[in-house]
Design a protein around this nucleic acid. Structure first.
Lengths: 121, 121
DNA sequence: TCAATAAGTTACCAGATGGTAACTATCAAA
DNA sequence: TTTGATAGTTACCATCTGGTAACTTATTGA
């Protein structure tokens, strides 16, 4: 994280980690993939506000960082692309859950906290 | 985080929390303030690459979100401005430490991990 | 052969973010 | 009264990020 001469955010593990999840949709994409929403089209249906372009970008970025795998299933009739979390991705998801918990107890009012606890995919 | 119709990142506690620390320098600023580097000038000395403008912006933003307090000490000869973590800020720092640990074990090679464990302010 | 479906790609645009350099305000000590 | 230190502010610019809308590719079943 640091030396006494000068800190540099780019070599800091916090910065590197935050970078992994600071795309506008990345935490949710990881969450959905882990819960079975693991194809391009399915992801789009669950996130109607994301464009194909951005979804592709975020998926490619997650793949580049080794958090998800991308598997093209040509066997299927209109060809499918299946995404899955890697071990890294699963591990990061656990961290994201901790971040979720912090945010839920520190940033939401009581009503919102209750809602959050009853949410489903 | 979600409804079945469509997910929205802006109402997600993860997104809100990541926003708090996703400024280029915010995690390090919080870390430094907690460790006694709590004046504008001191922060600048520890982060030579940050400009006054950006440092001001990040500090104002942290203050706006209730993570730090800002105290002007007019008693001092050239007037000082002292920043301190609030309870929220301290709590967020604990979360940041978890993020740090994840990043250190998952994103750094062994040599870098050793370095990170021996770092001092 | 042709339409339909899945999974993109491309061109283009707007706003947010970070950065540089120069200027400002306040006040006490010399 | 001028200098030096602290803590900014202002104008301006470049890059990054996310977004829209239209176009593309591959494949199969009708």
């Amino acid at each position: 994280m640091m030396d006494t001469i000068g800190y540099d955010t780019y070599s800091c593990p916090v910065g590197k980690t935050v970078e992994l999840i600071s795309g506008r949709w990345k935490p949710i994409i990881l969450y959905l993939i882990q819960h079975g929403v693991n194809r391009f089209g399915l992801l789009q249906k669950k996130m109607p506000k994301i464009s194909k372009k951005v979804l592709t970008e975020q998926l490619r970025d997650l793949e580049k960082h080794g958090l998800i795998s991308r598997d093209i299933r040509k066997s299927k009739h209109p060809q499918e692309v299946v995404y899955d979390l890697t071990a890294s991705g699963i591990s990061l998801r656990e961290l994201i859950d901790k971040i979720f918990d912090w945010g839920a107890t520190n940033l939401l009012d009581e009503a919102a906290q209750k809602m959050v606890k009853t949410m489903v995919i």
